[in-house]
Nucleic acid binder design. Structure first.
Lengths: 120, 120
DNA sequence: TTGATACTGAACCATGTGGTTCACTGTATG
DNA sequence: CATACAGTGAACCACATGGTTCAGTATCAA
């Protein structure tokens, strides 16, 4: 359970940076070396290495070094738990806002029929 | 677009703390004051106030102060964008891991190590 | 009026983050 | 061999984070 929470911590933290989300998107298209990514995101090798490490720590990316180049690709963790967490909470939200939803719906339709004027 | 990315940043960062996820769960059950939450999570009022502010900043929680009590409840943002982001990336993963999928399926039927439910 | 309650804000602390530079190691290649 | 190239690690920087304490302010209740 603690592990589960820790993993959620790591993953959500990894996803909370626009560069790292970009890297994931990039790797969704094709593998890339650290240099490739560093160039694409206009950042030093060292900087990109850190981002990749964060993603690797979270299990979202795996890397392998062959010769002098480290190749990065999407990892085995597929955001199942994160998707599950978010889904279950979206349901909480939904339960809580069903009533509100109806009111909003009602207001919308009234607006349409009522318009801004009251009498013609 | 920038705003969209910023919001994702804020939301994922808000979700990357176990206390804040706990608060959301709590508020899914019922409204609560800052004091309620502080007590539940064994933390000072000031500390809890900060967490609530982070959640509020991300639009996940709204609060209203009546008298001297600030009441917190789930906010209007319902993780639609986050769910969408994760879903779209899960599809990338899927495309990439179809073969692995079968292996995992096989393993799943053999052992049940994780107590968490499947999504949806 | 007095006092307790509920929160707020400033200040502080330790640690983490996102980025850099610089010096270095190991690998390819002319 | 000599040199360039890809990555690594340490050190540094400014700033954010997760928490605290302490000193308020505003509100409720007796």
């Amino acid at each position: 359970m603690v592990q589960y929470q820790d993993r959620l911590d790591l993953t959500f933290a990894a996803l909370s940076d626009v560069t790292r989300r970009g890297v994931l998107e990039q790797l969704g298209g094709s593998q890339a070396s650290i240099s490739d990514l560093a160039e694409r995101f206009q950042m030093t090798l060292t900087g990109m290495k850190k981002h990749v490490s964060v993603l690797e720590q979270a299990g979202l990316v795996v890397t392998e070094k062959v010769g002098r180049v480290r190749t990065c690709k999407l990892g085995p963790r597929r955001l199942e738990e994160e998707a599950a967490w978010i889904e279950s909470h979206r349901q909480l939200w939904s339960a809580r806002f069903d009533a509100l939803d109806k009111i909003v719906e009602k207001l919308k339709t009234q607006e349409k029929t009522d318009g801004h004027r009251k009498r013609r």
